[in-house]
Design a protein around this nucleic acid. Sequence first.
RNA 1: GGCGGCGUACCCAAGUGGCUAAGGGGGAGGUCUGCAAAACCUUUAUGCAGCGGUUCAAAUCCGCUCGCCGCCUCCA
Length: 484
Amino acid sequence: MRIYNTLAGEKEDFIPLVKDRVNMYVCGVTVYDNCHIGHARSAIVFDVIQRYLKYKGFNVKFVRNFTDIDDKIINRAKKEGIPWDEVARKYTEEFYNDMDSLGVARADIEPKATEHIKEIIDIVKGLIDKGYAYEKDSSIYFEVNKFHEYGKLSKRDKEDMIAGARVEVDERKKDPMDFALWKASKEGEPFWESPWGKGRPGWHIECTAMSIKHLAESFDIHGGGADLIFPHHENEIAQSEAFTGKPFVKYWVHNGFITIDKEKMSKSLGNFFTIKEVLDRYDPEVVRFFLLSTHYRSPIEFSDEQLKEAEVSIDRYYTTLIRIADFSGNGDVKDKTSGIEKTFEGVVNSFKEKFQAAMDDDFNTALALGHIFELIRETNRFLDSRPSGQKPSELISKAKELLSEAGGVLNIFRRAPDEWQSALMKSKKIQLTGQDVLNKIKEREEARQKKDWAASDAIRKELDEKGIILEDKKDGTDWKIKVG
RNA sequence: GGCGGCGUACCCAAGUGGCUAAGGGGGAGGUCUGCAAAACCUUUAUGCAGCGGUUCAAAUCCGCUCGCCGCCUCCA
């Protein structure tokens, strides 16, 4: 297995610190507002990574934190006129609502910053004792100059950054690059007692405290969005390695951004969609599929067109499932082994290997989906050849299992076709009920018996305009939701 | 200004030295059908931003040019 390691700047063989075990920490969200679709990408990417590692047989311990104390939370509380911890509680709940919809599994441990104040204070104390941190006006700062490897993750040196002239000037710091480990609280702000007076933790220190506590001083994978590389993860490395004297993380994994008109989706630009807004129009599985159809490190352009394509793709899967269910095994081709069967057998037998090879190569979900659709196409092709006998039945059920297994890793393709149809009715806000449609089908069938094609086609057209497609089959007429 | 990434068909998107450049969507033609839909078949990049170079061999490595984006500030 190979993983792109931001620290190394290239793909590396994945060798966990302890054989067969993976300790993994992913930066979660700051709970001050509803999540947007960019948060969904990060959550889904690491959800799939976590699922795949478990699928491969690793004993995975997955930690994803909540930042529940921060300037943004305090500001939000002021704005809404409610207590800061009420803001955190509310948006933690919203986070769960969104992530549950999207099929993002709960992490094994989901720690909160405010539940680790003691651990944070201990680490800050330790850093002061070791000479890496200093106090100024009851706040504690990490002295970046003392940590000589500073910049090794983001690949830059201090001079470059200062030349950027965008470093915030804070008179209390010895050096503009120094960052706060502990912030003295201002009047009216939330605080915890500390050896330096009333204050609260800085942003970066919580991840050091929580990852060390729940995983170890050194662990395997640390993930998050690419925008966390600097300063957040760079600072985590500095304070963690200064504190423990050990390498902090072996593999740093970062997901790319979602863009709108080629620009990064972000709160400050205002060009974002919340998860709730998107889920109002598309089924969660569609969103998930869309996000997995591009490699996790590449930017992905958010667009209706692409979401509709994802919807069509998923529908193709469920349509094939229906065809498989309809397969009787009593085709009229008595033939032993056709060329089509040989091809199908080959695709079935090589699928798992190809799927795993794709996922083993830095979690290439886009390639994995390509293999999935090759299998779907071959399954349809084989079904079209109307095979009969036991071997075809076995091959088809094996194909079905393989699709289901791969879908399980990506956490898509988990429903029955009729559940998918119901979900589409909801997301497309179709007003008709199933019974309405059946009545129309019956009416049309009567017209068809009389060979009144005009009346028959009028009904088809009427339903089509309402988003319903009719499919005439040998033993009756089926209907489905129009996708795309 | 510093650092980094990207540019593959009409659209999306894999592919980072070597069989005929995955897969999906769209278009065109066809099979099937009362007509459709679905499915399948054929077709849609002698070429991977451009120009040079390395190599027996490059979309893939190197150099330059053009274009786009990100990070350097809270940010998934």
